[in-house]
Each structure stands twice: as structure tokens, then as C-alpha cells.
């Protein structure tokens, strides 16, 4: 959809002008820190936290949102990572990360869409015209969103910036993720035990061809099918016991 009929509307002004930051907002942000790998400072720094809380509430419904947040809170208290969430919660966690990273609510797994009995089409939509430039994906690779926050004449001639290591990122988020009860364990965040030292991302986690331009980014196929599941296989899912 590109007619952008609601593009002129500014972001819903949900922020709390001259009010203390609300407790639900603080909780939402705090719980999103380990999911995204960005600190509470960075999440607040997008200016989108209130909008994303509203968006998630609208997309899932208040009850499902609260269920998700409390289960994720509980999982953390038990020392679990996001990759260890049950399937439905895991898919919601992915949608939330996608929202923070791109500014858009994604198309989610149809099974979860059905299970939640959502009252809206299962498609991708931009949260607002102001959310796209605040996507964290651009910061993840040290870049800037296409069409916003331009870096200046000729900067593209410089080498790309050095990115923080996984350990540095983990360190930076522990300050705001006070509920984490165990040291950072990559496998709790989806790292495949047999690929821990790999420099490359396995193809099933990369995008394949965008078969037409009308396919929204969240619906682009994978570059490869996932590896066969079986004993000791990388795709073995701890939560599916």
C-alpha cells in the first residue's frame, strides 16, 4: 500500500507532556531491552516508546499484550531468554522487535494471528510516518534510514563504522535490564550451539528474493529452508519439549 493516505497525520501524540513517565511505559520499555539488544536509553531515544506501546495494544488487544508482558517477565525471572519462550509469545516478541527495528508492525505467523483472534488484517503497516526514521535496524549496522537523518556530503566514501561486539552489546543492556538473572547466554537468544564461532549468518535466516515489489518486507521468503530438525540439530527448539 503506497498511497499513503494517512501520511499527513502526525504521530499520535501519546507522549506524556509535563507528566511523569508512566509505569506501564517504563515496564514496556524495560521488557523490550533484552528482546531488541538496545538499552532503555536507546529505546526511549527513538521517541517512539509511547507510540509503540499503543500500537502493540491496538494490534494484540489489551489482554493479549498484558499476557505477553507478564509471561515474558516471568520467563526472565526464571533466567530464560527470548528464544526460550513458547511459540505464541515468541512470535509476539518477534513482532515487537520488528516494530522497534523498522517502525512497522509486521505480518505475523497465521497460526498466531488466528489464535489471538485479531480483529484486523494480518498485514504489515507503518506505525506512523515518524516511526520509520526511528527504526533501530539502521543503527544496528551503523547507518541511517534511507530518506532521513542524512549523514552529510561524501560520508559514503568512508569505511563503515566498527560495530560493537555481541559481548559489548550484552554488557550495555544489562544496566537497564535489571531483571536478568543469569549472565548473557547467546543460545537463550537464538544462537545455534554448533555455529557460535561462525562469522556468517546461516542462509535460512537471510532474506531470499523479493518476488515482486508488492511483497512487504516481513513477508519476503527465506534464502533457504531451515535445516532438518532432529537430535542435536541446530533448529532444535528448547521450548517445544
Amino acid at each position: 500500500m503506497t498511497d499513503g493516505t494517512n501520511a499527513g497525520a502526525a504521530a499520535p501524540n501519546a507522549d506524556t507532556h509535563l507528566e511523569a513517565p508512566s509505569a506501564p511505559l517504563e515496564r514496556f520499555v524495560r521488557l523490550c531491552v533484552p528482546l531488541t539488544g538496545f538499552s532503555a536509553f536507546d529505546l526511549h531515544g527513538t521517541g517512539m516508546a509511547p507510540l509503540y506501546l499503543d500500537t502493540t495494544r491496538r494490534e494484540l488487544g489489551e489482554g493479549h499484550l498484558e499476557n505477553f508482558l507478564s509471561r515474558w517477565e516471568q520467563a526472565q525471572a526464571e533466567g530464560k531468554g527470548p528464544a526460550e519462550l513458547p511459540p505464541t509469545e515468541r512470535e509476539i516478541a518477534r513482532a515487537l522487535v520488528y516494530l522497534w527495528y523498522t517502525g512497522a508492525w509486521p505480518r505475523i505467523a497465521p497460526a498466531v494471528h488466528a489464535e489471538l483472534r485479531r480483529d484486523r488484517p494480518n498485514g504489515e503497516s507503518m506505525a506512523s510516518a515518524t516511526s520509520y526514521p526511528e527504526g533501530l535496524v539502521w543503527r544496528a549496522f551503523g547507518g541511517h534510514p534511507g530518506g532521513a537523518k542524512p549523514p552529510g556530503f561524501g560520508t559514503w566514501s568512508y569505511p563503515p563504522p566498527t560495530l560493537p561486539t555481541e559481548a559489548e552489546i550484552a554488557e550495555s543492556i544489562t544496566q537497564s535490564a535489571a531483571t536478568a538473572t543469569r549472565p548473557y547466554d547467546p543460545t537463550a537468544y537464538g544462537a545455534l550451539a554448533n555455529l557460535l564461532d561462525e562469522e556468517s549468518v546461516p542462509p535460512h535466516l537471510l532474506p531470499g528474493a523479493c518476488v515482486t515489489r508488492s511483497v512487504p518486507p516481513s513477508a519476503v521468503p527465506c534464502a533457504a529452508p531451515p535445516p532438518e530438525t532432529g537430535s542435536g540439530s541446530p533448529a532444535k527448539d528448547v521450548s517445544e519439549r
Binding site: G37, A109, A170, I173, G190, P226
Partner: peptide
């Protein structure tokens, strides 16, 4: 982002296995 998260379901519409989160995803 979507593919590295494992978002969107498999061919049967079920939630995908695997996928990255947090520091692993960002890095």
C-alpha cells in the same frame, strides 16, 4: 530483520523455529 527473527510463520503458517533476538540479533 524479519528473516533473522524467524518472523511470519512457516509454509503451514506455524511459528518458525530458531531466529535471533537481542545482542545476537543486533550484532
Amino acid at each position: 530483520v524479519a528473516r533473522m527473527l524467524g518472523l511470519g510463520g512457516d509454509a503451514n503458517g506455524e511459528v518458525r523455529h530458531g531466529g535471533y533476538f537481542g545482542p545476537k540479533l543486533r550484532r
